[in-house]
Design a protein around this nucleic acid. Structure first.
Lengths: 222, 222
DNA sequence: AATTGTGAAATTGTTCACAGCA
DNA sequence: TGCTGTGAACAATTTCACAATT
């Protein structure tokens, strides 16, 4: 279990399971604030609109964390999920593009809370370079490769217009970064060993639009 | 086809198909800028890292848009997808919470481009109420229900802390709004006829974290 | 010759249902 | 008794493969 998943197990685990792990983590963090010592798969499922069986199946990929008859120990399970997700540590993050979205992300509390520390900002705008955002001086984009390397950046957030995103990402890859969170509305080309996740906010609005126009039923378990 | 999907067809269409429709729309918009008159499922798939069969299957739910031997007409297909997604019109959107993320969204170009017009802003902070953001005066949250109704708001974006989100959403529902885009990190409780989509930026970082710690292979078609 | 549209097959993901355990 | 853990059943989604069409 944990980070010691063998290759066979690891490949059985679906993207959706991992995403739900984030939800369980969130729900457990809430419960921890209260007096709750244990939680059943039923309760956990309810708080994130999933099914109890799904919760148990998801968790079972990683080990046996519960006690039959009782449920799961809240704090312990939360810690174990944090370990599985790799958020029991600090990640060094750089953000490229200090525009509307970029600026918002610098101050985004959820990132810090989960160990994602933005320690570096880049922009190509002379008026922004050298300015201070929440204690971080904005660097010139032209020094990107060198600075990413020197600062041992592990994750890069792309918050620039689509027109320049691919060009910058090529440099990010050159710097040896293996994980990219992309806010630009295009599909980035990267080598096979680089992970990219896309954050496409317009897409979610489009889904809502579709649902309303077509009277698409919202999905609910049961 | 189009908004005239019958109930049976509509229910066969999966969430993933709709999300990919957004991707096709985006890719076609790019192509339209160039001289391209037609595009094959192969080309379309390539630009969004999908498979040709998937493109054809997705589109086939809504009609026969292509020509055998030739491909799909770019502009026409783009327009048809816009119609299916319901983004061939203007949607009246209100945004609650003019903090970091809220402010960024007011200026977010992708929303406007696709017909999502933010016409109303709400906050509970006296210092913000009455101030002007991109031409919109921030309203007091206490007038929420009345103003949402009076202004015929169709979509609400929630960009407030998790602690107050549910409380506000209850009012949003009271105002008769049927679509919510939620940036607060919690699962909102709403009646069955209200659509909610969650934008969880930390979740995507957690996925990257998991992938790196566990050496999870990035998924690629083929 | 190229490429769509689509049933059928393969694969992946979810739910059931119950044995096993506290 | 209550609730987990999990194989087996089921459901959804994707891919294949090929007939149809230009």
């Amino acid at each position: 279990m944990m980070a010691d998943l063998n290759a066979e197990t690891r490949n059985r685990i679906s993207e959706s399971t991992i995403r739900r792990l984030s939800l369980y983590f969130r729900a457990l963090s809430f419960l921890e604030g209260d007096e709750h010592e244990t939680v059943s798969s039923k309760e956990l499922a309810k708080s994130e609109k999933l099914t109890p069986a799904q919760v148990r199946k998801d968790l079972s990929f990683f080990g046996s964390f519960g006690t039959r008859g009782l449920g799961y120990p809240v704090t312990e399970l939360r810690d174990k999920i944090a370990r599985i997700l790799g958020i029991d540590r600090v990640w060094r993050v750089a953000l490229i593009g200090v525009g509307n979205i970029g600026s918002a992300l610098v101050s985004y509390k959820e990132f810090i809370k989960q160990g994602f520390h933005i320690v570096k900002l880049f922009d190509n705008d002379q008026r922004k370079i050298g300015s201070n955002h929440k204690g971080i001086i904005v660097s010139d984009i032209k020094d990107l490769v060198k600075e990413l390397k020197d600062d041992s950046i592990e994750i890069v957030v792309i918050a620039v217009p689509a027109t320049v995103a691919q060009y910058l990402v090529d440099d990010v890859v050159k710097a040896g970064v293996k994980a990219i969170l992309n806010f630009a509305p295009l599909n980035l080309r990267v080598p096979d060993d680089v992970h990219v996740r896309n954050e496409n906010m317009a897409m979610e609005l489009e889904y809502l639009s579709f649902a309303m126009v077509n009277d698409h039923p919202p999905r609910r378990p049961k």
